[in-house]
Design a protein around this nucleic acid. Structure first.
Lengths: 365, 365
DNA sequence: AATTAAATGATAAACGTTTACAATTAATTA
DNA sequence: TAATTAATTGTAAACGTTTATCATTTAATT
């Protein structure tokens, strides 16, 4: 073992110890550690001892006195899912670089578990909480009075009033994807809308969208962009090109089956996730379609995800979303007002719409 | 918003409050919350008020009194990497179900950052720590005296003395993979050994392996299994079939290039990760090889990972590893002795060695 | 009914901070 | 230089637990 790398933290010092050693009172020390001004000479006395002892204030004790602890919470539906773990990476990086710690809980995709996690967290020592609710449905638990804890919601929209939400610009994403496909000459673009649990049928999607302009569903927002691009290009909306489904591989297969069965002449697909797209593509391929020659495919995803194909995708910057969530929470903790933040998206053209961009892939374990 | 789902935690109760409300003394209450026996009738009085108030003891206060906080730490090299995020899911699930919270930090693949995270964690409120060091190299920081904190190392082997390590049975994995390929009639099996930073050349791998029987490198342990299976089958070891490389996609391409360039007649590949295997396969395919007809491929991975191909793989149960790590840490915290745990692995036959098992894939966001 | 054992209550000290208030020191003014 | 004011610093109580002590109540046993 390398001695240079040795990190050994043996003794735990208290403010009293430091007071003893430095000859400065605990009060002054406390003020110093909380950023108040002290005389030059006392500062030097303090610094010397702090360097020598490696002292840092006890999180627990300062929490007991009702002060900030530097710990923020993060609740995600499933930390093993790359979508959320990337956001978590952003959260943890940003938090770490600001001297904060992250208490992280996974709700395992279950509303019930989520409630338990929230309960556990609530009796904890948090300065604030970043919360990604399970699913996109309507039965999200209202944490209206979460012990006055500064709260930021990520990924989802319109969950709580007076709470900042950090989310991607779904409408722009749908618009960019559709517009690009149109530019490629595709006019029969299938829209595969995925829902945790579908609130409407294929035929009702347009109606539902118009009725829920500020809804929580990402598919709906993206669908709005799809409609906008079609309209701009003068392409009439054809409900036959829409498939309302869920988020599984099979859902993608089913959606493709439906699109094929309706003889829509579909030559483009916009799918919400990679897995759904995989299902679609495999179904279309079994019908003799070639990607991207006969069918262009665009998904919503993060660049870093590993896919069966190098999908052209609407890039969802996930690590960045985590960072932004932490910064937003920071503002809230500092008493500033924070608004919803809609994160911009860009289109990344890759193999499923052209051959121009080779796949890049790199990882280490 | 649904009223049934309302989780509102307004008031923070103290032991004194609960004593007042229940008519039970703080002393008895404290004893009750710490698992000591109380009279049936008092227990009922307490339970009623606890249910009504949602009271739970303050983590901070009990930490200050030197008691357990129910918070454990988890340090991973990169939470956005599915390999680690799956372990994290296991850790968080197991912790949550035991009423524990998880303070999670990502070291972003950097030794420097890792040290900072350790420092931050050390001044925290942990009952124990699960530590997955960055990389597999030799310069792992020695946390010999981590404030006497119960410590469990996961994934890596032989890092610290007197600290339990939880890891997969690499030797068995290598053995199973090799044996299966031999059963399929493959006798020219390439072994692509990946290292964070390679400690030896192709030619030296055998020598290095013999010299480092208890090393920290997973490739080495798997290589041992490879050798064992070859020997059992009476197949002589051919160093030309070995490629020492790193963990990137390009590393896989390079390894394949080397194997092809040496005219090894290679008809089987064992690769350490999916990404490396992707690189290998793409290179072999460009030479006209077909998978699995001309080339059988086996990787080490978790079933749930999404791959370019449905790889036959040595299943690394990652979620389970996280759970086991927590249980091991639990024992340590409770003062029991804990030993290293070598987790069993199994071979999952899928498309890259046969067509028997279709791909299954399912996910929700 | 008397004795013993078990459970509970009342009280207070500790843990390491923060903070109101008091006391000191330095800076400014007369 | 003394008096006044401003800037620092010190003292001690408080936060919510746990735990030790001792007294008391309740239940179990003889």
């Amino acid at each position: 073992m390398d001695n240079d790398n040795q990190i050994s933290i043996e003794t735990v010092y208290s403010l009293k110890d430091i007071a003893q050693l430095s000859g400065v009172s605990v009060a002054t020390l406390s003020r110093y550690f909380n950023g108040q001004k002290v005389r030059r000479s006392t500062e030097e006395k303090i610094k010397e001892i702090v360097d020598k002892t490696g002292y840092t204030p006890s999180i627990a004790a300062r929490f007991m006195r009702g002060r900030s602890t530097g710990v923020i919470g993060l609740i995600v539906p499933d930390i093993s899912h790359p979508f959320f773990s990337m956001i978590a990476e952003g959260v943890m990086n940003e938090a770490r670089d600001n001297g904060r710690l992250v208490l992280c809980g996974s709700s395992s995709g279950s509303r019930e578990v989520e409630k338990r996690v929230i309960r556990q967290f609530s009796q904890s020592i948090l300065d604030g909480l970043i919360y990604i609710p399970v699913g996109e449905a309507e039965d999200i638990p209202a944490i209206e009075t979460f012990r006055n804890l500064p709260l930021v919601v990520a990924v989802r929209l319109n969950i709580f009033k007076n709470v900042p939400h950090v989310y991607h610009d779904g409408e722009k994403g749908g618009y960019l994807a559709t517009k690009y496909l149109i530019q490629l000459g595709r006019t029969r673009i299938g829209f595969v809308a995925s829902f945790w649990s579908p609130p409407c049928t294929n035929e009702e999607l347009l109606e539902y969208t118009n009725a829920h302009l500020a809804g929580t569903f990402s598919s709906i927002h993206r669908f709005k962009g799809y409609l906008k691009a079609l309209e701009e290009a003068g392409i009439p909306y054809d409900p036959k090109l829409v498939a309302v489904t869920t988020y599984s591989h099979q859902a993608g297969v089913d959606a493709a089956t439906a699109l094929i069965g309706r003889f829509t002449n579909c030559n483009g697909i916009i799918a919400m996730t990679q897995i759904v797209a995989n299902g679609c593509v495999s179904r279309f391929k079994s019908q003799g379609y070639k990607v991207p020659e006969d069918l262009s495919v665009i998904i919503f995803d993060s660049n870093k995800q590993k896919a069966d194909y190098a999908y052209t995708n609407v890039e969802l910057s996930l690590v960045e979303m985590g960072q932004i969530a932490v910064r937003t929470l920071d503002n809230l903790i500092k008493g500033k007002k924070a608004n919803d933040i809609c994160i911009d998206v860009t289109l990344q053209v890759r193999e499923t719409t052209s051959f121009l961009h080779p796949r890049e892939n790199d990882e280490t374990i």
